[in-house]
Design a protein around this nucleic acid. Sequence first.
DNA 1: GGTATCTTGGATAACGTTTTCCATCCCACC
DNA 2: GGTGGGATGGAAAACGTTATCCAAGATACC
Lengths: 346, 346
Amino acid sequence: MDRETPRSGATLHDVAREAGVSLATASRAINGSTRKVNDEYRRRVLDAAARLDYSPNLSAQAVARGATMTVALLVADIADPYFSGIAAGVVREADHEGLIVTMAATGRDAARELELVRTLRGQRPRVMILAGSRHTADREPALADELAAFEANGGRVAFVGGHDLPFRTVLVENADGADALARTLAGIGYRRFAAIAGDTGLTTSDDRLAGFGAGLAASGLALDPGRIVRSDFTRDGGYDGMRQLISAGLDDIDLVFAVNDVMAVGALSALREAGFEPGRDVAVAGFDDIPTVRDVTPTLTTVRIPLDEVGRRALRRALDGDAPDAAGAVPTEVVLRASTPPIIGH
Amino acid sequence: MDRETPRSGATLHDVAREAGVSLATASRAINGSTRKVNDEYRRRVLDAAARLDYSPNLSAQAVARGATMTVALLVADIADPYFSGIAAGVVREADHEGLIVTMAATGRDAARELELVRTLRGQRPRVMILAGSRHTADREPALADELAAFEANGGRVAFVGGHDLPFRTVLVENADGADALARTLAGIGYRRFAAIAGDTGLTTSDDRLAGFGAGLAASGLALDPGRIVRSDFTRDGGYDGMRQLISAGLDDIDLVFAVNDVMAVGALSALREAGFEPGRDVAVAGFDDIPTVRDVTPTLTTVRIPLDEVGRRALRRALDGDAPDAAGAVPTEVVLRASTPPIIGH
DNA sequence: GGTATCTTGGATAACGTTTTCCATCCCACC
DNA sequence: GGTGGGATGGAAAACGTTATCCAAGATACC
């Protein structure tokens, strides 16, 4: 069976020879080209392909066709449920389109991100999706240039979440969602707030914080800037943030708003470890509605983002021509749970 | 600036022309080939490349070199923290090696998985990592054939977790870990057990269950087969499983062992919803040590698997020649937390 | 029955790289 | 100062596809 080179799989050439047809015919038979090919020939080709265990070389196809079937996805951290939720959506939509997803993690490092974009661009993906949260002030001309070059050569870029770069974006109602959350909380009796946020300049964090402030303002309340602690955009960041709040004294705080769920969950644990009962002693709310928040105690009030949908939309948005304003921002929804019980006597 | 074809990026040809050198020289200057190239020329080439915003076409390189820089990763569900943890490890190690990861989700469907393997094989990845949990009885000759063909052509396959296919594997101490867990729990006073498991035939589930049984047996205890409920290998599966146990009556059950953490977390929520206090009324233990379990209440006793390490090892194992037995199984560690308090009066 | 018109298979030229080979050039050595 | 040999640049042949032509056979039309 291994008469000549068992090495390095059968090529289309081999299939054509085996089937006794020309290379062109074999190619036409195997991918459904526009050209019609005789049923007998097609059968012979397909048989030969099966017999030789032929697998078309995607790289070769890519260079011949001048187009790949891949989409590149950049996230900050794959293990973070926010990003893995989005990634799942991207992958789902991608393979609905017959596209292959290549994934990379920036670790929230702008330099690394730029480097990855450069590398990934070499892949000539159809689409490049950037889902890390961005710094506004970033002023990243290098990144913008790289992406612009990518688009100039026929690629599509899609961002998830706000940024000030001139590319397609799937907007999430961060400000509006946080605004609605604040109003709702005010509506059920909360008055004295603190917040755990990411670094200033991180658009997601800023938008949510601003929205929350606006929502409070609309209810005649305010978020004291002195009550905003800054820390990492991670579970441990939330934990640390809450510890700061605790050591500064929780006495005149009803509710702590963490700008995302992983932080909120960390905050919950910090509270409990310090002997507080979250929800009773102090309320906590988050943002994202990652799966975990249904299973913590108390279950967490949050603003739901359909993560999977965000991922799918990002791909769609990049793929579908220049749909001008494409359905607007992804709507969010306030989900009240046990971590923010209505305040009695309100 | 856009004199001729601004379309479809600069090619190495263009760079060579711009630099006034031959194609060969340009190629040698840009990738660090063995051949030496005059510093002056190299500089000119590099300058030209920068000026033209040249990005090497990875597909073309792949076909010319006969090898790609990609690794393909198949998981059951990207949003599941178990898999995203492993994926993060794979990606980390991959980009340490300058490799690009393409990711696909099987949704735990064998047919889909086979299809994905076929497609991904076309990519000619250096490595293919399969991390879904497998059915033993699967008898999946088609999958085995496809993977064998892939290896015959120079690819490497690595599985994560047990299976009965003849490929490299990163083994996790599923049985031993569960055994140790059972002994530990017996040691702190638990006597009457129930379990929530996945379908029979799912190796991960089977191994853990068997190990748990063995550990109990070693302590003179037993897991009544009638107390094993079967359900999906997901959070909701755990939730449903626990509901079944609850409706069958929890009276003579001290502790429920869920074969993985997401199920355990679901089980916790089911308990709480039914008015039980997990840890006090009935203890719960899981397996995996996903990040979430530190943040649920009570914190969950589990068997720790270094997920990231598993992912990294899978890639290493595939890459590093035929390291025969390669460091054995990934060690696990029992982590006792609040969901299994020592039983008083023991 | 002769000429247009469709079909459809086959050569062959791309596609953007890398990698042989050659061809020079330069240096040294005796 | 001629010859051997180590550098190093260039032309051209791969790599595995697809797509553009051509040619030849079949069909149809008057």
